[in-house]
Simulated scan of single mutants.
Amino acid sequence: MLIFATIAATYQTGQASALQITTRSLTLVAGASDGGSKIGGVVNHLFTFTPGTSGQTIGSIQFLYCTTASVTACTTPSGLVTTSATLFSQSGATGFTLVNTTNGAPYITRTASAITGTPALSYQLNTITNPTVTAQTFYVRITIFTAASLGGTATDTGSVAAATTNQIILTGTMPESLIFCAGATVSTTSGIPDCTTATSGAVSFNQLFSPTDTATATSQMAASTNATNGYVITVNGVTLTSGSNTIPAMTSATTGVRGTGQFGMNLKLNTTATSTPAVGTEVAATPNGTDLRGQAFTGYNTADTFKFVSGDPVAKSDNTVAGPTNAQIFTASYIVNVAGNQASGTYTTTLTYICTATY
């Protein structure tokens, strides 16, 4: 939408007895709902100008709307309405009231008094209906009178030009959106989680499995959606397996116990009570219940407590209430504890995270 348009003009009025008004312009200012240069829009007209005669007496100023700038007969632009105009502001020479009874020829009037020097004058007339002819240039002939109500002598004069035009109406559509990715790491770009930075999903544990220590690993995922009811992320897969040998999954949320077969995960920053160094990171950015709603789900949302059940929800965008959310990065922390008789071998699992949005 075009909000305003300003065009200054330097048209001579041809009145030999009058001095030229200088530095003059008409700015089409946006109205309550219409852009300033909208064809037929109800807008505001701001006049600024400087008198040519220093110290003159001013009693009234006329704004005569015409289709031409010359002093020949004035034809009011088609569709122009000034009879609803109001005087919104005045400066430089004040004390005026508006007379708008004649369409296309409003004027402001006061008890005549002299100005000091040649001050910059400014008057804004509100709720004027622009001409309705497409892309029309129209002119306003400004004339200063020495007495009230267009009486006395016409002194300084000058014309300004303005133009109406088509508005630019931009239209765009935001579709249903779900951005989700998982990998060993997901980074940010300009502080925003960026799925184009997601690395391979191949992740190795930090050490060999041992009945005397806890092995750890991490992966990351990022999600955002505009879904009204937000998203749910589930983990899907099987426990770590080597041939026919497996490491028992932690089917209920519990702490790690060294020397006991355990495979589990959470989405929290854990402590050295689980491992050294501590594994994991809190969701980033921190959920705030408004534009950041993603958080770890029950069973996976307590530090140093781990669980793994295929199909479980591990995260939801339901902080405060389920709903849309900007992007956040979750860090999944995995632990493995093994019993002393755990069979040797290379243990692997393929986990698939699924993010489901409900619109």
Results as ranks from 00 to 15, higher is better:
Ile3Asp: 14
Phe4Tyr: 13
Ala5Gly: 13
Ala8Met: 03
Thr10Leu: 13
Tyr11Cys: 01
Gln12Gly: 06
Ala18Asp: 05
Ile21Met: 08
Ile21Asp: 04
Leu26Phe: 04
Leu28Gly: 03
Ser37Leu: 07
Val42His: 00
Val42Gly: 04
Leu46Gln: 10
Phe47Glu: 03
Phe47Ser: 04
Thr50Ser: 01
Gly59Ile: 09
Gln62Val: 07
Thr68Cys: 00
Thr68Ala: 12
Ala69Asn: 04
Ala69Val: 06
Ser70Tyr: 11
Val71Ala: 14
Thr72Glu: 13
Cys74Leu: 09
Cys74Met: 05
Thr75Trp: 02
Leu80Ile: 14
Gln90Gly: 05
Ala93Ser: 15
Thr94Glu: 08
Thr94Ile: 10
Thr94Phe: 06
Leu98His: 09
Thr101Arg: 13
Thr101Tyr: 07
Asn103Gln: 13
Asn103Thr: 10
Asn103Leu: 09
Gly104Glu: 11
Ala105Cys: 05
Pro106His: 03
Arg110Phe: 09
Ala120Gln: 13
Leu121His: 04
Tyr123His: 08
Gln124Asp: 03
Gln124Trp: 11
Asn126Phe: 08
Thr129Gly: 06
Thr129Trp: 08
Pro131Leu: 01
Thr132Val: 11
Val133Phe: 07
Tyr139Ala: 03
Val140Cys: 14
Thr143Lys: 13
Ser149Arg: 06
Gly151Ala: 01
Ala154Cys: 03
Thr155Tyr: 00
Thr157Asp: 09
Gly158Glu: 00
Ala161Phe: 00
Ile168Thr: 15
Ile169Val: 15
Ile169Pro: 02
Ile169Asp: 12
Leu178Glu: 02
Ala184Met: 10
Ala184Thr: 11
Thr185Arg: 13
Thr189Leu: 10
Ser190Cys: 11
Ala198Lys: 08
Ala198Asn: 10
Ser200Glu: 05
Ala202Cys: 01
Ser204Val: 11
Ser204Glu: 14
Gln207Leu: 05
Leu208Gly: 14
Asp213Leu: 14
Asp213Trp: 11
Thr214Val: 15
Ala217Ser: 04
Thr218Lys: 04
Ser219Ala: 14
Ser219Val: 08
Gln220Pro: 03
Gln220His: 01
Ser224Asp: 13
Thr228Gln: 14
Tyr231Arg: 07
Ile233Leu: 12
Thr234His: 08
Thr234Ile: 10
Val238Asn: 12
Thr239His: 00
Thr241Pro: 01
Gly243Met: 06
Met250Tyr: 04
Met250Gly: 06
Thr251Gln: 12
Thr251Val: 08
Ala253Val: 13
Arg258Met: 09
Thr260Arg: 15
Gln262His: 09
Gln262Glu: 14
Phe263Glu: 02
Lys268Leu: 05
Leu269Cys: 10
Thr272Met: 01
Val279Glu: 06
Ala284Cys: 10
Ala285Arg: 15
Asn288Pro: 09
Gly289Tyr: 12
Gln295Ser: 08
Ala296Val: 10
Val309Gln: 11
Val314Leu: 07
Val314Pro: 02
Lys316Trp: 11
Asn319Tyr: 15
Asn319Val: 12
Val321Pro: 00
Ala322Met: 06
Pro324Met: 01
Thr325Val: 05
Asn326Tyr: 08
Ser333Asp: 03
Tyr334Leu: 06
Tyr334Cys: 00
Ile335Phe: 00
Ala339Cys: 01
Ala343Met: 00
Ser344Pro: 05
Tyr347Ile: 00
Thr348Asp: 01
Leu351Met: 13
Leu351Thr: 09
Tyr359Met: 11
